[in-house]
């Protein structure tokens, strides 16, 4: 993803205590949680499938690839949960996937120059994070590299 443009429109959401942002162009829709179907042996990255208007989509969990640890999952309000339907490129092919979010915050326009690369020493896996910026409350907002995450998932799935 190029950060050339002066501003970026992103969707911000949270998984556990971590705030994340994805480019609005990657987002297809935000939907209420749907009944999920467990896929035995599919691994922890995308352990379920959901029916999004007739299409069977894998439902991903970004906690594992991004190393997000939620000490108090019970605190997350049930009715704030959403599924984000995203377009990502997996192994060169455009693919639609859904990911879970505990809460979706807002559509934000951020100056491109406020996005910084991941510090060399950080708790986040650098291969899955494109950059981060400082949110309104001073916390770090991660921009995950969805294509890298999903491609890695697919490779792990193929090996499994």
């Amino acid at each position: 993803m190029t950060l050339a443009a002066s501003h970026k429109i992103v969707i911000t959401f949270s998984i556990g205590p971590q705030r994340l942002a994805i480019p609005a162009t990657d987002l297809r829709e935000i939907i209420d949680p749907l009944p999920t179907t467990r896929v035995p042996g599919a691994g922890d990255f995308a352990p379920w499938v959901v029916n999004v208007r007739g299409a069977v989509l894998p439902l991903g969990d970004l906690r594992l690839p991004l190393g997000i640890n939620d000490p108090n999952p019970a605190e997350r309000p049930e009715d704030a949960r959403r599924f984000l339907v995203l377009e990502a490129v997996i192994g060169g092919e455009p693919t639609t996937v859904a990911v879970m979010a505990d809460i979706v915050h807002e559509v934000a326009t951020i100056p491109s120059k406020s996005i910084e690369p991941l510090p060399a020493t950080s708790m986040w896996p650098s291969e899955f994070v494109e950059g981060l910026f400082k949110g309104p409350e001073g916390e770090f907002v991660l921009i995950p590299d969805l294509s890298a995450i999903f491609t890695a998932m697919a490779q792990r799935a193929a090996v499994a």
């Binding site: 896929v39 991903g60 697919a154 799935a157």
Partner: peptide, 10 residues
């Protein structure tokens, strides 16, 4: 419906 590549390990 095909399952996605993400779940090939199923």
């Amino acid at each position: 419906k095909q399952v996605s590549k993400l779940q090939q390990g199923a």
